[in-house]
Design a protein around this nucleic acid. Structure first.
Lengths: 201, 201
DNA sequence: CAGCATACATACTATCTAGTATGTTGTCAA
DNA sequence: TTGACAACATACTAGATAGTATGTATGCTG
């Protein structure tokens, strides 16, 4: 294994990672490319070598980071649970418990981008819609499974429930931004728990 | 009644109103003062005569417009209902039905500002928190009333429910921005209806 | 009606920002 | 070993933007 002073894939990934964090904290329009590269070990030349425009950076973040982050955070762990409904609640609880206080003011990166960019950029809108759809789809799969396994009432509209769960989770993060503590997160968790209990058999 | 060529209160209100619409559509940071005054019958001089900075304009919008808009839209109409729970659902339904398709991509002005400005401006954050708190407070008042009148189970945590309702409503508007139709609005409405039915006596 | 503060309009500026132009260095293949 | 091209670095630019400087008109007050 030879040490290389250049590693393009790593450089690109590094820029993406830093940009993701900066955008998460300052918003896409609120952060400048200068600010991003200043947090980086590379310069503006490298940045524009990999991303022809700022928008392309944003699209790459959605495609190459956000999608995976969402799935790994909310969906992948559900595999481990016998009753997916329990899985959804347990994971939600765990995510709230382990949320860093310092991150609470910044909400959910997906929701942030949806709110900021959907109305002003159709490509962003479409890409973000795809992420949301996938998130809901996967949730629905597990909800259907729960229904088949007899954990959930047969008359529950699985699509509607999947949409509602994702909405609830996003919403609690959204309002959390304006208070800075976990009030809304726990409130949302307990309400969702009650609701799911009412739908369970 | 004398016709005046100058009417400072009206001018200020006019600027506020136009700015509110522009910010609603483009975001606070996304809209320029030039863009706002271009939609106005006055010029930049007038703008800075009334608002010393762009931030002050934003604060004024929250204090003088947003607060009232929220209350009149979501709270005031609840007076007319015997069962406040029915009121909340009926109003929500009505608001969804009468929502203009052209506005769907732009979400809720309050939620938009929370998402965009809370993390980057503490004064915005505090003002927006106040609006949200008031909205929840008022909702809780009606929920308590419903409980006292025997429409709602006694063991329901009224604060938690009020928070959940507001979260649900905001969330549905938030995700609507990325699809452009009323799917999430209706989904949210029907889920909330089911949930409230489960809590009703 | 004189004069003065308020209510505007116009023109300008400093700064920030996305993007470019151009230069330099590392790597790899022939 | 040597081009040659990718992978960067540096310096610059055009446009946008918040805010200012300054000027003018309106209407009220004494």
């Amino acid at each position: 294994m030879v040490k290389k002073s250049r590693n393009p894939e790593k450089t690109r990934a590094h820029i993406l990672e830093v940009a993701f964090g900066e955008i998460y904290r300052k918003g896409f329009q609120g952060v400048s490319i200068d600010a991003i590269v200043n947090e980086t070990s590379v310069t503006k030349g490298a940045f524009f070598h990999y991303f022809p425009t700022k928008q392309e950076l944003g699209y790459a973040i959605v495609d190459e980071i956000l999608n995976d982050v969402i799935l790994e955070r909310w969906i992948t762990p559900l595999k481990a649970y016998k009753n997916p409904i329990n899985g959804i609640l347990s994971r939600y609880k765990k995510i709230i418990e382990t949320a860093e206080d310092a991150d609470l003011p910044f909400g959910c990166p997906l929701n942030n981008l949806i709110q900021e960019m959907s109305p002003v950029d159709p490509i962003f809108k479409e890409k973000l819609r795809t992420v949301i759809s996938l998130w809901i789809d996967k949730n629905e799969e597990y909800i259907k499974k729960a229904q088949e396994l007899g954990y959930l009432k047969k008359d529950v509209d699985t699509r509607q429930l999947a949409e509602f769960i994702v909405m609830t989770q996003e919403a609690s993060y959204g309002l959390t931004k304006t208070v800075g503590d976990k009030t809304f997160l726990w409130s949302s968790y307990h309400s969702l728990k009650k609701y799911l209990a009412a739908l369970s058999v």
